[in-house]
C-alpha cells in the first residue's frame, strides 16, 4: 500500500539544498510522519546529496539527482540516485569514533550516521546511476 509519494529530480547543485529540505519537510508533514523518522530520512537525503555533488562529478559536468520517498505500510522508503561516478558509500570503512579528540577524524561520518539510523540500506549501479535504497521504521 502506497499512500504518499514524493518524486524529485534536481540538478547536482548545492544551491538546491535549502529548497530540497523544505520540500521533504512539507511532504513529511502532509504524510503525517513522526519527527524521528522524518529527521532520519532528511539527514540521509542531506548527506547523500552533499556527497554526490562534492565527489560524484569531479570534471564539473552537469548531473541529475533523483529522490523518491514513499510511505509503504509501517516503513518509509527512500530511493536516492545520481549519475555521478560509480561509488558505493556502504563499502567504505566506518569512521574512527573511539579515538581521542585530538586524533578524531570525521571523514565518512555522514554515511555512518545514515547507515546507523536507517532500518536497511542497499547500493546498486543501475543504468549508469548510483542507486541507494533505504528504509526507515515509522515508529517515533
Amino acid at each position: 500500500m502506497t499512500d504518499h509519494e514524493l518524486d524529485l529530480r534536481l540538478p547536482n547543485d548545492l544551491a538546491e539544498l535549502d529548497a530540497l529540505s523544505s520540500r521533504i519537510e512539507a511532504f513529511m508533514e502532509a504524510a503525517g510522519i513522526a519527527t524521528t523518522p522524518a529527521y532520519r530520512l532528511q539527514l540521509a537525503v542531506d548527506e547523500f546529496f552533499n556527497n554526490a555533488v562534492d565527489y560524484g562529478y569531479p570534471d564539473g559536468r552537469a548531473g541529475e539527482i533523483g529522490i523518491e520517498v514513499r510511505r509503504v505500510g509501517d516503513k518509509l522508503h527512500l530511493v536516492f540516485s545520481d549519475d555521478g561516478d560509480p561509488f558505493d558509500p556502504f563499502a567504505a570503512p566506518a569512521p574512527d569514533l573511539d579515538g581521542a579528540l585530538a586524533e578524531r577524524r570525521v571523514g565518512g561520518l555522514g554515511v555512518h550516521l545514515v547507515r546507523t539510523l536507517c532500518d536497511s540500506f542497499a547500493y546498486a549501479r543501475e543504468k549508469d546511476r548510483n542507486v541507494k535504497r533505504l528504509t526507515f521504521a515509522l515508529a517515533d
Binding site: S21, Q42, L43, D46, V106, G110, L113
Partner: peptide, 15 residues
Amino acid sequence: YISSAGLRVVLKATK
C-alpha cells in the same frame, strides 16, 4: 536539525 557538516563545526570549536 544537525548534519555531519554541523557536527564538524562543533568538533572544530571543541578542539
